[in-house]
Structure formats: C-alpha cells, structure tokens
Design a binder for these strands. Structure first.
Lengths: 192, 192
DNA sequence: GTCTATACACAGATAGAC
DNA sequence: GTCTATCTGTGTATAGAC
C-alpha cells in the first residue's frame, strides 16, 4: 500500500538515487534532479520538506538495504569448499551494480549521520551472521568461524573495489571464479 | 630542486589535499581552500591556471603515489605463512591514513580522466607484482601465485573498507592480526 | 606574487498563483 | 500537486592595483 508506483514522489526519489550514484551527492543539484524527473524544484520541496538532504537520507537507506543479499542458494552446502563456491557465485550475479552502490555508500560515508552509519554497520553484522551460520557447519572453533567469515566478506569487497569499480576485471580478463578457486583451494584439506 | 617547501604553492596544494580528503572534491570550494591556506582565491588562480580542477589533478596523482608501499620488511620471508604475517603487519602500520586515502580515491574515481584511471590501475599492477614476486618463492604454479596475490590485496582492501573506514574495528575490537591469522592458517599445510 | 573588487552563473529554498 | 517567479547565498573565475 505504501509504495504506489509512478507517483511523482517515487519518480523524484528514483531520479535522485540515479544522479547521486552517477555524480555524487554534492555534485548533484536540485535543479538537475527536477529537470531529470520532469518537474520543477518547487515540486521537490512539496514532497520533501527538508529538500536535498531528505532525499539523501531516504536514498541512502534504500541503497544500504539493497546491498543485503539473501544468500539463498548458498545455504545447505555439503562442504566448506562447496559453500564458498556457491557464496562466490551468488555474489557474482549482478556484481557491477552492487559494486557501484558499495562505492557510493563508501564515498558518501562522511555525509551520513551517526544513526545512518550505525545502520550500515548493523547491515554488515547481519550479513556476517548469515555467512557465519553456514561456515560454522564445517568449522568447530567459534573464533575461527567469525574470522573466516569476515575474510570472505573482505575479499569480496576488495574484489568489487579493484576488479569491478577500477576496471581491472576487464583489463586482466579476470572473473570472480578465479578468486573463488584460490580461496577454496586454500581452505580445503588443511584441517579447517 | 623541484620541491622547495613552504612556498605558497605547496601550502595551497597541501591544504587542498587535506580538504578534498575530509569533505570530497565537489563539496570543497576554492573559497574554503583559500581561507584555510591563508591567502585569497586570486592567489590560487595565479599558481594554478586551471583552478580547482588542476588542484584535483595534482592532488590525485600525489595521493595515488602515496598509496604505494615498498614492502620492505615483507621481503625474504622463510615461508608463505611468514610472508603473509609480515605483509599484513607491514600494511597494518598507518592503516587509518591509508584507508582514508583509499576511500577517497575510490570515491572520486568518476571524476578522474582516462589517464588518471590508467595510472591508478598501473599502481595496483605494480603492487601486485611486488607481492607476487615474494609469493612465487613458495608456490610453483604461476596462475596460483597470481590469484593468491590478488586475494591478499583484495582482503586488505576489504578490511580497510569495513573495519577501518566504517569503524567496525573499534566496534568489534578486531585487529588486522585476526584476519592475518585465519589467512595463514588456511594457507599453511595444505600443499600450497 | 598577492591583494581588492567584482562579474556572473548556479546553488538551495520559498511565496503565492492556479 | 504543480507551476512561475524570485530571494539570497555561494560557487568559480578574472581584472587590475600594489
């Protein structure tokens, strides 16, 4: 009920989200948003009393939520290697878009409020829990599970940074599976 | 000869570098730079004919170069585990500052020219070469060496993202050594 | 080389008509 | 709800005096 589509409010939000992602918050003007959304600035201020800053708040919240992945097809793996392979492949889907959003959130972090940063931290903690819940099926030591799960997340974030956003994937002809393979090889058959 | 310190030009550059890092390029005005540098905007335009954009070009180049690490104390390790431990500890030094710069470069990437992006890519390729040169002392397969080296770099970048810039290090009471340990444990005694 | 003074475009934001 | 019109501040940039 809350999300009736195609009303102007949603169009403005979508437009702002797109422009913020492309050019950054500070470099995007309300004028530009209005033009792209097919309305005037006054219309924006009718729907969003706090103006541009309110747009950022809402867009940031949505963007962060959209980063959450369900990890559906990663569940119920038969081994740690199997899990990491599934996990990697699941994250590889739609990675360009996700990488762009990761870059944006990271870029605008200094603009966020304490609460928004805390929310983003919680999203990572929740994501980590999801990963750890699968990992602990194969590793006994709790601390080991925690750390390995963070390692997987860090590796994925770093990959997004260098290989996707910086364009190294195209330059080196790499695919995520290359990184997955070395991870699984490292983690198999060594007591973990 | 080229870097005579304390002339106004250098003061302006240092100030711009600091403000760009703190608030981002778009959100930093030439007026603000001038005030912080203790001069007027006209002085900036005397030293930098292309104005703000020229400041960005120079600052970006310096920032990127400053990201390069020599890997001095990581050389000549006695085993792969030893290397990774040294590598991690070496990068852990001054990580707050480096993480901030990494975030900034990533954030401003869309503003950079083709050449500047290519330069940044080359820096990563060079860094990867340095890492690979050490790793290949312990692993035979060339592809394996390549991938493992990238994994180490990605893990480090991801750590910087979540644990330092997002503040998870303080929140979870983590230190880089926790991630190093799980990496070395994974890579020891499994044929790699 | 650094200043004062200023040009001029564009920023975010609002009042009031329809 | 959306518009036109407009306010006021700030942005980049430059001319010309010292």
């Amino acid at each position: 009920m809350k999300t009736k589509k195609n009303n102007r409010r949603e169009i403005i939000l979508d437009t702002a989200a797109r422009l913020f992602l492309e050019r950054g918050y500070s470099a995007t003007s309300t004028r530009h948003i209005a033009e792209s959304a097919g309305c005037t600035e006054a219309a924006i201020y009718y729907h969003f009393k706090d103006g541009k800053r309110e747009l950022l708040r809402i867009v940031a919240k949505r963007r962060m939520s959209s980063l959450m992945v369900a990890l559906d097809s990663s569940r119920g793996a038969s081994s740690l290697t199997d899990f990491i392979t599934r996990f990697g492949n699941e994250l590889a889907e739609g990675r360009e878009e996700r990488a762009k959003i990761l870059r944006w959130v990271s870029a605008e972090l200094p603009l966020f409020s304490e609460e928004e940063i805390a929310l983003h931290q919680q999203l990572y903690l929740f994501f980590h829990q999801q990963v750890a819940a699968e990992v602990e099926r194969f590793i006994v030591d709790k601390n080991e599970v925690e750390r390995l799960s963070w390692l997987l997340i860090c590796a994925m974030l770093g990959y997004a940074d260098v290989f996707i956003n910086l364009g190294m994937e195209a330059r080196l002809n790499y695919v995520p599976q290359d990184l997955i393979r070395v991870l699984t090889k490292a983690l198999s058959s060594n007591g973990l």
